[in-house]
Amino acid sequence: MEHAETTGWPGQIHAALREHEVRQVAYVPDAGHRELIAMCERDAAMTGVTLTTEEEGIALLGGAWLGGQRGVLLMQSSGVGNCVNMLSLARTCGFPLLMLVTMRGQWGEFNPWQVPMGQATPEVLRLSGAIVFEVDKADEIAETVNAAARMVFNGPSSAAVLISQRVLGAKTFGR
């Protein structure tokens, strides 16, 4: 792909990731990240890495940074629960860790199994030493990703952008 696809917030995130020279895009798929994942997979400058569990992504991106590459971890809020011990790796070593989290269990969730982890997500991340940005307006997502990426890669630090279920809307979750 030659140019960033800038339509809609997934395209704007993709453009921001390109601007920050993100090369490794690690993810366990989430419906809310579907468009962004597809854009990153189409982008020849990025390597998409499908994980079996989200914690793999934190180790992957630590290794990427050792090798001089930047990365991002895409996941849904339940995936944050899978990461808890690995978050110490990023914090102890000062690996930059940019996490983009699509929220579940939060805004009119239809599946009660998502609610406990979704509700705990911001606190779990904060307790583990990550900076947390919560966004609930589509037109504020890209600038928030930009702000988070600047802090992550200049810090370095761990930061998560939590994209509200309110933004993801009924279309994505109207199953």
Binding site: Q24, E55, A59, L60, G63, A64, L66, Q69, S88
Partner: peptide, 16 residues
Amino acid sequence: GAMGAAAMMGLGLALA
């Protein structure tokens, strides 16, 4: 620390 991380760190490094 980070028990379970070693092989994945190797992967990130190998890709980079």
